[in-house]
């Protein structure tokens, strides 16, 4: 039950070491560790190690931090949760200059929480690479009460804020980093179709 013709649904081309950048900030969640390690393999040797920063959290997913603590990599900052990663990232970006490249690997809600906070500090979205991996599910904002649900995995869900049954649209707000959920039984209250698994 996806909506054809919606262009705002983001894509995730994957991480590619960009040697034109002067500073590299790698940020990963859970299974994203593998993508960060591959990116580091490409950067080490061409980029000065002082210019590389690695931030990682297992988040709600599995912990692969040992992939990143290998001796050949710069020492990563490992945090317990997303909020700590964002705080660490803000510390790096406040002093960063133009020419900084970010590489973000993790679940979709994680990627967009990072992008949102980075943009506020002047990072251009064009300078942020992204690779989606790990837990599925979308961040969805209820258009009625504005409550955001963090990992919605079905086409219809009940809003934790206003308890309406919401249909998850493919329309994505880059600004807020969320999909849109709209009341599914507004015309015929109580007639809620059977939820299906969301496409990734």
């Amino acid at each position: 039950m996806s909506e054809p013709g919606i262009k705002s649904k983001p894509n995730y081309p994957g991480l590619e070491p960009d040697t034109s950048a002067r500073q590299h900030l790698l940020i990963g969640e859970a299974d994203g560790a593998g993508s960060l390690a591959r990116t580091l393999d490409g950067l080490i040797g061409t980029a000065n190690e002082d210019t590389i920063t690695v931030l990682y959290t297992p988040g709600d997913g599995s912990d692969h931090s040992s992939t990143l603590t290998a001796a050949r990599y710069p020492t990563p900052t490992i945090s317990a949760q997303l909020e700590d990663v964002i705080t660490a990232m803000q510390g790096v970006l406040r002093d960063a200059r133009m020419g900084t490249r970010m590489y973000v690997a993790g679940s979709e809600p994680f990627i967009w929480a990072v992008i949102r906070a980075a943009r506020e500090l002047g990072m251009a979205e064009a300078a942020i690479q992204r690779e989606r991996c790990g837990l599925m599910g979308r961040s969805v904002i209820c258009v009625h009460c504005k409550t955001t649900a963090w990992r919605v995995s079905t086409t219809i869900y009940q809003c934790p804020g206003c308890e309406l049954h919401l249909f998850v649209r493919d329309h994505f707000s880059r600004r807020w980093g969320v999909y849109q959920g709209v009341c599914v039984d507004a015309e015929a209250p109580g007639e809620v179709p059977e939820p299906e698994e969301l496409e990734p």
């Binding site: 970006l93 960063a96 200059r97 133009m98 900084t100 500090l121 002047g122 990072m123």
Partner: peptide
């Protein structure tokens, strides 16, 4: 000129 500009320039 461009080497040392803050993010967002």
């Amino acid at each position: 000129i461009l080497a040392d500009q803050p993010l967002g320039t």
